[in-house]
Amino acid sequence: MLTIENLQANVSDKNILKGLNLEIKPGEVHAIMGPNGAGKSTLGHVLAGRDGYEVSGGSVTLEGKDLLALECEERAREGIFLAFQYPVEIPGVSNMEFLKASVDAVRKHRELPAWDAVSFMKKAREACTAVNLDQQFLKRGVNEGFSGGEKKRNEIMQMMLLEPKLAILDETDSGLDIDALQVVANGVNALRSPDRSFIVVTHYQRLLDFIVPDYVHVLADGKIVKSGDKNLALELEEKGYGWLEGESA
């Protein structure tokens, strides 16, 4: 699905990713953990193609395609979805209008038939129900006046409609109480399938109790310094990151 080789990237001329390797197969869930400033969020933005995130070396392919050659919106249409850590508000643009434009663009690119207004509404309502969001949220401005938890659930709702190949969850658990965490995790688990992969970026092991990963990687100083299964997360919870410092050298 996704192959990252020796990826190096700069933000504002600062070298953040320093040779990162990662192979993700279809259907797998990979958790990325690591200390603050290790480059976890940067990885998500580099994969999504954010402006100002400059790749200085290495390669990324999505199903054999050179991902780095594509514009941000093209990557999204190809199936990269990033659930934002801090979803931004777009006042006056209704969630529904935004979603429709998004779904239309993505489906058109994938040569899928466009959803008519009725089936779109039906899907959107179902997605709302799945993440426990009132349908009124479809009519409100994108993230406008949403609470932190509502914003995160709104992200998952969008993910459900866009049916990505690779979803990147950037600290989706931050700022969520335990109930909201459960809702978000249920949404993600419902989308798990043999042809969809996830990268779950998180600081805390507790999210991984709900979204059980196939692999856990520790990102430190721009590289993956240790990989393991879900038990690695438990170990990190217990010991912190300090014991891994030697390995990043």
Binding site: R50, E71, C72, V88, F98, V106, H109
Partner: peptide, 29 residues
């Protein structure tokens, strides 16, 4: 904001369409 554009683009919407959507939202009243 760049963040608004980024959100739109990350959802597959191109920059021009995104700006027009944001501006239209701004003018809704």
């Amino acid at each position: 904001s760049e963040d608004q554009l980024y959100l739109c683009q990350q959802r597959g919407i191109d920059a021009e369409k995104a700006v027009s959507m944001i501006v239209n939202g701004f003018c809704k009243d």
